[in-house]
Nucleic acid binder design. Structure first.
Lengths: 227, 227
DNA sequence: AAAAATCTTGACCAGTTGGTCAACACTGAT
DNA sequence: ATCAGTGTTGACCAACTGGTCAAGATTTTT
């Protein structure tokens, strides 16, 4: 997940690689650039974003940005990879809980949490997929597909065991993704419809609870609702 | 909804406006351009799309495109307006049915249908909102807000009448939008996860039924399920 | 037929963009 | 102090973009 940066710029001839301070600067600046890029990409899309904008937001000259990330594409891909790994982590709950109510509750909780804390990432992903995933198609075909397949098996088992109603696991997953990510991708619309004010803590709580309630009730999983 | 084209290019001095043939060409070509633009915008976003691409796809020179649509922005807005009006029409079911199961079933059906038949439009809308609605903010604040408010009143009445469980009407609407539009906006991802093949008629039927089932069950609306 | 209106288009332009590069600055080791 | 490795940056460029324009083609009206 790190091999994209081809240039092994750092530490080549220096005999002792004890030059920690430089390495620190390097990492710190890359972080800075990535954070700026995430926001700019999410706001303007890949083509809409300019390296100049990103550099400006990071408070550095454009040339300096290109010193750390040779091309706009490398920078973009780096960001997508991070988002993706965050999403995968959120799905641990499937492995840690055998009970569907527990597992799905936690998964939805986490996904909603990510929508709130990482809205930019979610938008970039959505943007990328909406445009036909020109840059991350390989991810869809490998990692995401494998992940999805394995989760569908688990859901199917719940159905076979009579723990939830018989629905196509695929559509359940899509619905969870759609409903939770909607709060990140469409945050602007939600905000506008909320009188121009972003959702309060309470409103977020309500949203999370409503999403959970509807989905869990919707698949007949609520013999005992985890509240 | 038509006042955007400021240039009243047509019929100005010609005394008799019986010049039907020209007018026909005009309309036909505008349609052609709009259709091409819809696809290109949905694929590349506003900034990513170039007027050259649109002209190419429409099979005309770029200059000709600019003869009919003075700027890229005018063309874009025109498209957004069309999409929006299609979505509003889909919501008639709220007025025509007093029963929540009936009203919501039809609404979801229609929304899913639109996702299938107008995926480009949905993507453009999503793209626009995700980027902060720079061009259609007025729509969100006026038409969409009014529409949403009026529907929320209806849903709230269902709750008061004990026809559905007490959930925040807002989140029910968001969930319906998210779940149905997901099948348009993320069609590429769905296709990839479906082995690279787009959904068959049967799969679309299943998707539609599952979405309806989960949502209607989810809000406790299914004393009698409309099947 | 010929004038008037409308439509078509190749050539062009000014502004912007991603990316380069050579000169310069800093840091830490010897 | 010196020097190699690393980091910084203003200036630059070739490619591309939205949009213009004037000359010409086509159709309709007189």
């Amino acid at each position: 997940m790190d091999q994209i940066l081809k240039k092994p710029i750092r530490a080549k001839k220096s005999r002792r690689n004890k030059s920690a301070p430089k390495a620190g600067i390097r990492q710190k600046k890359q972080r800075l650039i990535l954070k700026a890029a995430e926001k700019v990409f999410s706001e303007f899309g890949f083509r809409g974003a300019t390296t100049q904008m990103i550099a400006d937001r990071a408070g550095i000259p454009k040339a300096n940005l290109h010193y750390y990330f040779p091309t706009k594409l490398v920078l973009y891909r780096k960001i997508i990879e991070e988002i993706f790994s965050i999403w995968l982590e959120a799905a641990q709950s499937f492995d840690e809980n055998s009970d569907p109510v527990e597992a799905l509750s936690r998964y939805i909780d986490k996904k909603m949490e990510i929508s709130r804390s990482h809205p930019f990432g979610s938008k970039i992903w959505a943007n990328e997929v909406m445009h036909g995933a020109p840059i991350i198609q390989d991810y869809l075909e490998t990692t995401l597909r494998e992940w999805t397949d394995s989760r569908m098996v688990i859901i199917q088992r719940w159905i076979d065991d009579g723990l939830i109603d018989p629905i196509d696991p695929r559509h359940l997953l899509y619905m969870i993704w759609a409903s939770t990510q909607h709060y990140a991708d469409f945050v602007h619309q939600i905000k506008t419809l909320n009188g121009g004010k972003k959702l309060s803590d309470t409103q977020w709580d309500n949203a999370r609870e409503d999403v959970k309630t509807i989905i869990l009730n919707g698949i007949g999983a609520t013999k005992r609702v985890a509240k």
